[in-house]
Amino acid sequence: MNPNVRIRELQRDKCNFVLSGVNLGFANSFRRTMMADIPTVAIDMVVFEVNTTVLPDEFIAHRLGMIPLISTNCDEGMRYTRDCDCELGCPLCMVVLTLHVRCDMPGTTMNITSDHLQIQSGGDAWGGEELTKRGEDFGLPVSKSRGFNGHPILIASLRKGQELKIRCEAKKGIAKDHAKWSPCTALGFEYDPYNKLRHTTYWFETDKQAEWPLSANAEEEEPPREDAPFDYNAEPNKFYFNVETDGSLTAKEVILKSLSNMQSRTATLVYNIKHQSRPDAMDTTDAPAFPPAGQRTSGQDQSYTNASGWGASPNTSGANMGWASPNATAQGGWSL
């Protein structure tokens, strides 16, 4: 195998490249890793102090969770809450964002957007080298990042007198736990645009060529000759990727992190096979990006293991995010 990557287009949040010299299994693992295994930061818990908007707490909490936050170098710059020594969250494993908006203009509605979210500075960091590894504006909504030219994300609309005051705790996670932690939006993946390998059969009425438009990637390959014999030994080895991200990570970072993630997991596997006599072999620190499976399901993964599943329980409200403190005491809303 002689892996080779040719980048056709590279932007901040988009990368289009051709991967060749690898087999199908590797290419698909690569795709799946980019989608599901790259850690990012996303709002995971919301404490409502005042919510007089028309939307219920869970509704807003769910919307907040979906907002992409800048997560540059998240895998090294942050700890999973479950791995952290702290009890209630600390700067090492948590970014606190606050939002306090009140509409006082009569006759108009006011939009709360992701731009209203602010990082709460301060807090003790008990050492830890993680903080130094973070990129700038870590944890800030992507819409507030430098060079962003799009619309901020709408959270809710307010009329006069309505107010929203919340405190959000953003945590590190992966898309296997909840889709909000996925850095990718769409992930295009294709090989063999001419179907030379006959991995699929195209349905057609009269003429296959006329009825099935070729994909853009067909330009990269030789059209098969009409009389070419079918090579049943051929294997796919050229894969066309199109990675688009939501901005929390750059496309480049997603690709690089995925590769190193795969590498470390493979290394763990190899290590464990070699030391299989040791029963605690799975408990490894070699692959911090990928915690052992058992631990994962018992800890964070309640969005689909919780038997009841109805959204209102603390672990499932907004699918594993956005529940408010049950000990709230202040009148009329939630408090800390």
Binding site: A36, A186, F189, S215, N242, E244
Partner: peptide
């Protein structure tokens, strides 16, 4: 209920 990475997709990633 299937995780997204296990779902089928087309060449555009839909």
């Amino acid at each position: 209920i299937v995780p997204q990475e296990d779902m089928p997709f087309n060449d555009q990633g839909i």
